[in-house]
Amino acid sequence: MIRLSNLTKKFGDVLAVDDLTLTVKPGEFFGFLGPNGAGKTTTIKMMTGLFTPTSGSITIHGFDIQTQPLEAKLATGYIPDQPFLYEKLTGREFLYFSAGLYKIDYKTATERIKELTDTFEIGSWIDRRTEFYSQGMRQRIVIAAALLHDPKVLVVDEPMVGLDPRSAHIVKEVFKRKSKQGIAIFMSTHSLPVVEELCDRIGILKQGRLVFEDAFGALQMFKDKYNGQFESTFLELTK
């Protein structure tokens, strides 16, 4: 369960996120949309503890990210929009590094790394330094690292960037499976087809404010109003 209550973030005079309130229940797949600069990544960075909210609160799996950050982080798997990795480590080393940070015991870590390496078809790249990886390969490692500790909540920022169609398909299948297992997924993306395919509910952010939030089905009446296309609806809502 993810709960954002009256969340606000200011950078100097700039209001990046304005009084945002929303909830994502266990097993729910929430699509977070909005034009560039709307405040999506800022919201996600607050949810993962990388930014401190100016006001409001965030609860992850029952833990407040500000007062119980370690518990909240333990329950979260985060996939950033830019898959930066320690360049001097190999993919395998990075996964063991992440496992250690989440205190996963050695045996479980080894099994999980093997399983995730197979799932994401990382192959022999796993033992090369990440500085030689393509964007897609980095993305696979980052997604694998986020799933290592069986998180209760997944926070995903543009997961399909750089992935080839096969990898994108695998990632989508993994997300669907995780959602069915009861994991709350909060996904920010610009890919409207991905939202249509995966999400149960969506929220559209514009200039830091939530301008639409409802179950995906509720969008139908908007879609009907704008030539039946989600894209047209999105453009109209964010105009």
């Binding site: 503890g49 990388l50 982080k73 930066f84 320690y86 360049e87 990075f94 940070l101 989440y102 205190k103």
Partner: peptide, 14 residues
Amino acid sequence: EGMNFWSVLIAPVK
């Protein structure tokens, strides 16, 4: 630590 530091900062480490 550069832009890679996120992986430590989001982990349950003080």
